[in-house]
Amino acid sequence: MRRLLDRLYAAALWLAAITFALIAVLVLAQILGRLTDRVARLLELPPPGLTIPSLAEFGAFLFTGAVFLGLAGTLQAGSHVRVKLLIRSLPEAVARWLGALVCLGAAGLAVFATWSSGLQVADSIAFDSVSYGMIPIPLAIPQGVMTAGLALFTVALVDSAVTLATGGQPGFDAAETRTERGD
């Protein structure tokens, strides 16, 4: 099960990275299109008008997907901000259980966010909601990606809570330990 979860977190991180790269490619294409127009004007030629319609919407939807897909993997990599003043001052067993409770509390919030996001996806499907840009995009697509990212984040939080409660070292602790050692 551990390998499956770690692969799932890694796959979501790769999808997030690919999504960020896609944003960069779209923006670069838009910039090159504008430069082509300017060069054409300088040469007194008609500008070809190369543009990507609804680029702002595509970028926003891709960015949202990247952020939410990256939540679980960045938690496991120890990249989320954590304040450990209290936990470091407690005995190890107490700190472990407090960490597990915090993860479960965060998982409860993530379950609520996932549920709410899922309801929004269902509404978007029921009402055939689309974006308002030049290219109508079914809103259920970016909302579905967001919901999937939240669901995976919930799984990662529960995974960390169970790992702490059973005496293991969750991914974020292992990553922070490697960082402190300079590995």
Score class of each variant (00 low, 15 high):
residue 125 I to A: 14
residue 125 I to T: 10
residue 125 I to C: 04
residue 126 A to T: 06
residue 126 A to S: 12
residue 126 A to L: 11
residue 126 A to W: 06
residue 127 F to I: 14
residue 127 F to M: 14
residue 127 F to P: 08
residue 128 D to E: 08
residue 129 S to A: 07
residue 129 S to W: 04
residue 129 S to R: 10
residue 129 S to F: 13
residue 129 S to T: 13
residue 130 V to H: 09
residue 130 V to P: 10
residue 130 V to D: 08
residue 130 V to C: 11
residue 130 V to M: 15
residue 130 V to N: 14
residue 130 V to Y: 06
residue 131 S to G: 14
residue 131 S to Y: 04
residue 131 S to F: 05
residue 131 S to K: 10
residue 131 S to N: 04
residue 132 Y to T: 06
residue 132 Y to F: 15
residue 132 Y to K: 12
residue 132 Y to Q: 12
residue 132 Y to C: 13
residue 133 G to Y: 03
residue 133 G to W: 03
residue 133 G to C: 10
residue 133 G to Q: 15
residue 133 G to V: 12
residue 134 M to R: 07
residue 134 M to Q: 15
residue 135 I to M: 07
residue 135 I to T: 05
residue 135 I to G: 00
residue 135 I to W: 01
residue 135 I to V: 11
residue 135 I to C: 06
residue 136 P to T: 08
residue 137 I to L: 06
residue 137 I to Q: 08
residue 137 I to G: 06
residue 137 I to Y: 09
residue 138 P to N: 06
residue 138 P to T: 06
residue 138 P to C: 14
residue 139 L to W: 12
residue 139 L to F: 13
residue 139 L to I: 13
residue 139 L to Q: 09
residue 140 A to P: 00
residue 140 A to D: 06
residue 141 I to G: 07
residue 141 I to F: 12
residue 142 P to I: 00
residue 142 P to L: 01
residue 142 P to D: 00
residue 143 Q to M: 09
residue 143 Q to W: 13
residue 144 G to F: 14
residue 144 G to I: 12
residue 145 V to P: 05
residue 145 V to C: 09
residue 145 V to S: 11
residue 146 M to C: 12
residue 146 M to V: 13
residue 146 M to S: 11
residue 146 M to D: 00
residue 146 M to N: 03
residue 147 T to K: 09
residue 147 T to Q: 11
residue 148 A to L: 10
residue 148 A to Q: 15
residue 148 A to F: 13
residue 148 A to C: 15
residue 149 G to C: 05
residue 150 L to D: 07
residue 150 L to N: 09
residue 150 L to P: 11
residue 151 A to C: 03
residue 151 A to H: 02
residue 152 L to Y: 00
residue 152 L to H: 00
residue 152 L to C: 10
residue 152 L to Q: 02
residue 152 L to E: 05
residue 152 L to D: 02
residue 152 L to R: 00
residue 153 F to W: 04
residue 153 F to D: 11
residue 153 F to K: 06
residue 154 T to H: 03
residue 154 T to A: 09
residue 154 T to K: 01
residue 154 T to M: 08
residue 155 V to M: 13
residue 155 V to R: 09
residue 156 A to E: 00
residue 157 L to R: 01
residue 157 L to I: 08
residue 158 V to P: 01
residue 158 V to N: 09
residue 158 V to D: 04
residue 158 V to F: 10
residue 159 D to C: 04
residue 159 D to Q: 04
residue 160 S to Y: 02
residue 160 S to R: 05
residue 160 S to E: 15
residue 161 A to P: 01
residue 161 A to I: 07
residue 162 V to N: 03
residue 162 V to Y: 03
residue 162 V to P: 09
residue 162 V to R: 06
residue 162 V to K: 05
